[in-house]
Design a protein around this nucleic acid. Structure first.
Lengths: 195, 195, 195, 195
DNA sequence: GATGAATGAGTTTTCATTCAT
DNA sequence: TATGAATGAAAACTCATTCAT
């Protein structure tokens, strides 16, 4: 029906949607195949296993994300600008890979325990280092408040960004940049009205 | 199908931990039984089905939570105080039912589609009404900023609160009230340092 | 239908017969279950996998065999008597485990390559050492002819003994001891008539 | 379905090696194709089915073998010389068709039951007649010992000869004739040292 | 001659559930 | 209350084979 690696990517995109909607475990290979218009067995011409499908979906997403994160972190920005850039890239990541992010959110913790998915844990660690480091720098440079527990703050930031994947639909009324802007405004300035 | 309500609750608590750790679909009845020190078949003396276990876990949690939410909402507080009280009760709910909350976070969207779990959707709706209403009232009464998209703000608030269940461990170094305080401070005042 | 480990052994005996008759790969789990009078899925209450069935069949056989070989080798017999005793024990092993031996003959070479079945290769090595050592001792002590290639002789002895499993049926007209006697007579004295 | 008889034979030789190494059932068509450097589907340009590949491999071998056996049997030799010639031709057969012989050893019993492979059973019967007849003649003519069970002796002879295929590698240090010589010496004279 | 993608039947395995004891 | 042994339906996966290009 097409040729080469595009077919593979088509199928992966289909699988990602179904995984995101139903959950990895609850998704049957047959359901993916139905969605792709082929028989279940035919998927095994393209992929070794259901597991290798999520694997490819998640690793593709993380590879892309880290390329952008690394560019930001290498940019020599101040702490506030770094946080702003990381948040913006995160929402862009959700925009480009929203199914993968939804899967990541729901399944990473369990998948992580398998050696094959060790890279999920690695990414988590790297992620934490980048955010925590930036927050600490921001406190030291008097950009951010010093009275908040920094690990708690990190967790709140991290989670709110990514949970957005659970309701975000690409092509909706807010662009990822707009969502990032509003999110940053809320988190940096607070929702209280100042007089 | 009776069997001492204590034993039943013990088993439910065990089941909740396993569901929270592995995911509902990925959890086998045998695993729960193992964790409880009995054989899989023996669980069926206490419960009709695996489904009725999650059902009981989730409905118990929601019943408890809404008793407290309703008390807050009936209290005639101003918008800011209402938000503060709801957030505090939410973190207390995570403290008392952390496994149930984790299950709720991961599984509600899929379970909701079954008639048996319609109450999950109902709760969602009620929840949204309470929060959105309070936020709108806050904007009208000039307690909160008017320049933020209110649905977006609601989603951020809601998600960050509940996602905490994924890392919160009861008996840790922060009490639920302390976490609520820090969370509210961040969200209301922002993390930027003011001069 | 019975209880405890006997059921397991019954099922293993059934599986061994089918494996021996049809070959390991050609045997479906359903066929074993049919032969046992249960459904295919029910086998998994007793065993992890088809593979673990062969594993248990083969390792049980080898454990038993080596207990007897080791007793012989520790007995301080001369080379001829050692060979006689090993051959006799081998035919007794075929008598007690004829299905396992048939499976071993046909499948060991391929199974060996899997880590799980490394003990098959280990056994092979130990076996070779025992036989080769005894033959060499026999040549040195002038019990056996010196003009034969000793590895070739070893292979002939080894193979003929075990291939017997492919036609041997327990309870037939020859006892294992009688077969051993005839085999030894042929191999030690030759089939030529002496005058 | 033509395609130059050389290509066909190349592919058959490849298939025979894989069948011999992995077993017929355990060998996938894809594995054969991999070994041949083509895709699985492409094999079907040359052959009707996997089954027709073994068929051709085995029947080619048996046709060749029987041409030589028949020549020996028509040669009017005495019993001892007949046995010697048959054994020698057998080892030559292993040398020329070692993969086919290995397949024959492992798979014949099961394949035989299919009508298509009836010729395997026929060959077996003819083989048994030739050997048993010669042994009986040898006993009658006082060339061989009379005190051995003749069917048992036949089985031992037959099996040891053919099992050699499982370890024999063409081009090794012993020629087939040398192996035949040693084998005959052992079997005719025994391994005991005579004084 | 060969490829790439699929089919479809069958195989192993999983697992919630049942039930006699 | 619990066990041990099963059932049965569905899931993941395998693989010989087909066929348009």
């Amino acid at each position: 029906m097409s040729g080469g690696p595009e077919r593979r990517e088509e199928l992966l995109a289909t699988a990602a949607e179904v995984f995101a909607a139903q959950g990895y475990r609850a998704t049957t290979v047959r359901r993916i195949a139905d969605a792709a218009g082929i028989l279940a067995g035919s998927l095994y011409y393209h992929f070794d296993s259901k597991e290798s499908m999520v694997d490819e979906i998640l690793s593709t997403f993380l590879t892309d994300l880290w390329a952008r994160y690394d560019a930001v972190l290498a940019g020599g920005l101040g702490p506030r600008e770094t946080i702003e850039a990381l948040v913006t890239e995160s929402f862009r990541g959700i925009d480009r890979h929203h199914a993968a992010v939804a899967i990541y959110q729901k399944e990473a913790r369990v998948l992580q325990t398998q050696p094959r998915f060790a890279y999920l844990a690695d990414s988590q660690v790297k992620f934490e280092k980048a955010w925590l480091g930036t927050l600490e720098r921001g406190v030291a440079e008097r950009a951010f408040r010093a009275d908040l527990d920094i690990r708690l703050t990190y967790r709140f930031l991290r989670d709110t960004v990514w949970v957005a994947a659970s309701w975000y639909r690409p092509g909706g009324q807010h662009s990822p940049e707009e969502i990032a802007r509003q999110y940053l405004s809320m988190v940096l300035e607070g929702i209280n009205l100042r007089e």
